[in-house]
Design a binder for these strands. Structure first.
Lengths: 130, 130
DNA sequence: TCACTATATAATTATACATGCATATAGCTA
DNA sequence: TAGCTATATGCATGTATAATTATATAGTGA
């Protein structure tokens, strides 16, 4: 059993990765260090918002920063984020494939809502059917 | 560049893992399938709340479920969650160690708030100093 | 010093969501 | 059927936080 405080720290880290805007920032930084303005112009969005997300990523130790003249360069500090994203990407794809596979199946057979019947509506909503 | 919708799906998955209660549920299920009541009695918390978290995990395909007589057994459907937790755990530990390492350093040297100076307050707050 | 650029922060608003309580649904047994 | 257990769901509330706007801070160069 992992310590309670550790569970919360880990959850916080997942939560930080659980924002599309922050994922896009990390993805943008994959090519190397960039200034805030460069990131902003790459990812539609205003500068204060990007700055705040960068601050959150920095506090978590996921990105590092260094000032060069008048600009601040941010870069990915912990490459584990790419591994995490890759794993979650595959997992998401597996799940989507699983939904698709059973999407054409018949309705519920038992009392409990099973993956097959329950998730059919999910696939539908993803496709805008509902 | 990954597709926008994929970024949101991946973020959603991280977000689902970003709740301490859900992490504890997954951790509890690491030993094998359990009924809702078993999970509830293992993890302080009321039954409706656990049920709702289980539903969220189920919708994401992270856990599976099967009814047996009057009970519903939940189990981990995608073991990738353990790998993810392990990676994040190590990353969190690295970050904490990094904070500790520089916690005794002197204050800011340059205009920008660096890891060293900025995070000293973080370490302090973790220890309840602030 | 002033003007300019780059970045960070403060304040506000809106929204998502975890929690807790009450209740509903489903299955079992008599 | 009724009564029981197990699980799910509806509703209300509080809280965290993302986005926006305006402004402040920091550095550069004249």
């Amino acid at each position: 059993m992992i310590h309670e405080k550790m569970v919360e720290l880990v959850a916080r880290r997942f939560q930080i990765l659980g924002e599309p805007c922050r994922l896009r920032i990390l993805q943008t930084l994959q090519g190397g260090a960039m200034t805030v303005n460069q990131i902003v112009s790459e990812l539609e969005g205003n500068q204060p918002n990007i700055s705040k997300h960068l601050q959150i990523l920095f506090d978590a130790g996921l990105v590092g920063r260094a000032r060069s003249r008048n600009s601040v360069f941010y870069s990915v500090a912990d490459p584990v984020v790419f591994k995490l994203c890759d794993l979650v990407c595959r997992s998401t794809a597996r799940h989507a494939a699983h939904l698709q596979q059973y999407a054409a199946g018949t309705g519920r057979r038992s009392g409990i809502q099973t993956q097959k019947s329950h998730l059919r509506s999910k696939v539908g909503s993803l496709q805008g059917v509902n």
